[in-house]
Design a protein around this nucleic acid. Structure first.
Lengths: 148, 148
DNA sequence: CAGTATCCCTCAAGATACTG
DNA sequence: CAGTATCTTGAGGGATACTG
């Protein structure tokens, strides 16, 4: 939304949501986060987004309290990005978009991609949001490397 | 989504939905359509979007079978844009975004804007999608002029 | 009033090189 | 590996003038 757009777009909850999440990458990042992606490099390869853009989006999502960056669960010296409660409450948005896409944007028989755990060979289950607060999501056991 | 983004974004239903609806204006147009807006000028004033952009978006939404353009219900020689069944099935997306915004992006007590019918002075009710197919939505009785 | 045609410009996004 | 810094490009979007 630009500065020139009419006031109603910023005073409307839909418009304001779109201000935060309505760019080309943010919702895809959140989608991947629901699929258990946590690390910069995994987001980067999965999305095919430029590094600087990804860094910028992650920063903005952290600023917007959609993600938190916290020390990585494995020993590595870097951050991992996990959904906050606010981020998890985007679940219905992602689900609604997914269902609309499945229903209207795929030919019958055409198959959706899923994230595949290259260790187990099994699809990574989509996370369901926690029902209430508490500790952050448990560390992902999977290292998602491939999309099928 | 650009040409360079990784394949998963186009084979994922979420990504594909975002290809169609993920720009700055499309979902806001659909939101207004749910609120009963049908005419070019009403969209234009309500959104504050440039005319050429609006024309382009409307065209794309018609191409994507989200809107249909049909002869205006009043005598006027122009088109009006109404949601198709596919467009109406975006209702959960708009609702999810609205609820997320209401819950997380407004201070307590801060009030949302609503479209107001300037003739009756009453808020325009949000449309609920028809349960099944059938005729297009009945002509809107309201001329929405103002946002409060 | 409902669009179309132009022109212009900003900023998002990409590529790449660099650092701890 | 996880970022940051820099440069460049192009598309998306705005303003405005024009037409039926």
């Amino acid at each position: 939304m630009t500065e020139h757009s009419v006031d109603s777009n910023r005073t409307c909850p839909v418009g304001r949501s779109l201000d935060v999440m309505g760019d080309r990458w943010s919702l895809l990042i959140v989608r991947d986060a629901f699929d258990g992606v946590r690390r910069f490099g995994d987001f980067q390869r999965g999305l095919g987004v430029a590094r600087n853009i990804l860094a910028d989006r992650l920063r903005k999502l952290v600023d917007a309290d959609v993600l938190v960056s916290q020390p990585a669960a494995d020993g590595s010296a870097y951050q991992e990005y996990v959904l906050t409660r606010r981020g998890e409450s985007l679940f219905p948005v992602v689900v609604a978009l997914r269902q609309w896409g499945e229903k209207h944007l795929f030919d019958r028989g055409e198959k959706y991609s899923r994230l595949i755990d290259t260790d187990t060979g099994k699809p990574v289950p989509v996370m369901t949001p926690r029902t209430a607060g508490g500790s952050p999501l448990p560390p992902a056991q999977t290292r998602v490397k491939k999309v099928v």
